[in-house]
Simulated scan of single mutants.
Amino acid sequence: MSRVVVFDEFGGPDVMHVVEEPVVEPAAGEVRVRIEAFAVNPLDLMMRSGASPVTVPLPHARLGVEGTGVIDALGPETTGLEIGDPVILTAVPDATVRGSYAEYTTVPASRVVARPAGLGITEAAAIWVAYSTAYGALVEKAGMRPGDHVLITAASGGVGRAAIQIADQIGAVPIAVTRHTAKKDDLLAAGAAAVIATDQVDVVEAVRHHTGGTGADIVLDLVTGPGQQDLVKAARPGGTLVAAGFLDPRPTPFPRSTPLTIFSYQSFEHTLDAVVVKRMAAFLNAGVRLGALRPAIDTVFALDDVVEAHRHREKGLHTGGKIVVTV
């Protein structure tokens, strides 16, 4: 049997409960993964509360788009993997049916990559979503190069911190944006070349100062909303803005007559592309090996405490690191 987190109605963390279900055999081309740990992501909270942009069929819906574990069984015609291989989930098709909030799950073999050597289980559970999103937006979409000045909003969050580290690894210049001056030292320690605290300075003026008057080459907007207008002004003519987040629920006015290339980015654009996933995995492995990429962990909970893990996330008690649940 497998312990699985399910919910039968939309609502707060209390709607989740742990049940036991038979362990499913992997189909052709699939693997079964014995989950060791998974991370709590904003999408999980949206799905549980009924605010998800995708349909969540009730009752008995599952959660979880990120996790790490060990290959436990191979389906027919599955090649290139062995039982006992430690892996990271790169995508969970039908997360409402076989999400990672469980002791076991099955996924297509193409949706796992080898776990980087040197990563602990809790770090491995928390690395893929944030780092693949930041890498996909900055490298694959925006074409980030050494020397580029990269403006990163919501920099203290998981994707923001990943973007700082990835920019450093490439040789770009990450400029972090945060709403709170108190987070400045922490972001500098995390690798930001400069930090702009919007409770103290104007974004446009500060970016001009840190870029010698030219503006940012790339803007990674993880917030969107009305504040994006200032980010457009902070970018250099001919620069690139990638909107990859939705932390501000207010409408985002579409920039008109702007000399920027503007992209909207969602991570599944690349995490479902086997060729790009291979590049992502290679970059991730190199970064971990060099010590350049390392996810921050906030708090670790046990599976039986998954409700508390969601409460912790909703109350904003996390410090920017990921919340991880061990199984």
Rank of each mutant, 00 (worst) to 15 (best):
A193H: 09
A27Y: 10
D273T: 00
I166M: 05
D221C: 13
G136C: 05
K233Q: 10
E140C: 00
A51S: 00
G84T: 14
T178L: 10
F263C: 08
V277R: 13
E21P: 05
A234N: 09
K322G: 07
E66P: 02
A114W: 07
I262P: 11
D44Q: 06
I166W: 10
G215E: 04
G50V: 00
A286Q: 15
F246S: 14
G11A: 13
P146F: 12
G99Y: 13
T258S: 15
E82G: 03
G171K: 07
D186N: 02
Q266D: 10
R3S: 12
A162F: 12
D85W: 09
A194E: 06
E269D: 03
L74I: 00
R3Q: 10
G84Y: 13
G320D: 05
P86Y: 12
F268S: 11
A234M: 04
E77P: 00
Q200S: 15
A296C: 00
V18H: 04
G320R: 00
L260H: 10
E140L: 03
L293E: 06
D186T: 09
V307A: 08
T299R: 10
Q200W: 02
G11Q: 13
L222W: 01
G160F: 06
V113W: 10
L260D: 11
M47H: 00
G84W: 13
R208Y: 04
V18D: 03
Y104G: 10
R250P: 04
I71E: 01
K141D: 02
R179G: 15
A176E: 10
H60M: 06
P116Y: 12
S257V: 07
K233M: 02
R115S: 11
I127F: 08
A137I: 03
G64N: 05
L81W: 11
A292R: 11
T211M: 01
A292G: 00
A197N: 11
V276E: 05
H270M: 04
R236N: 03
G227S: 13
K315E: 14
G160C: 07
V288K: 14
A197Y: 06
V70P: 01
Y131I: 09
P108Y: 10
D230T: 05
G80T: 11
Q165S: 06
I121W: 14
V204A: 05
E103G: 15
P86I: 09
A124I: 05
E103I: 11
P86N: 14
K183P: 12
E30H: 15
A243S: 14
I196M: 08
G225V: 08
V219K: 08
A124M: 02
P57S: 09
I71T: 04
I164V: 12
S100P: 14
D8H: 11
E308T: 08
G158I: 03
G215M: 02
A302W: 02
V54C: 00
A182F: 11
D221Q: 08
L138T: 04
A142W: 09
P226V: 07
E140Y: 02
P174N: 06
A124G: 15
D202T: 12
G29T: 09
I121S: 14
A282Q: 13
Q169T: 03
L284V: 12
V6E: 12
L43W: 07
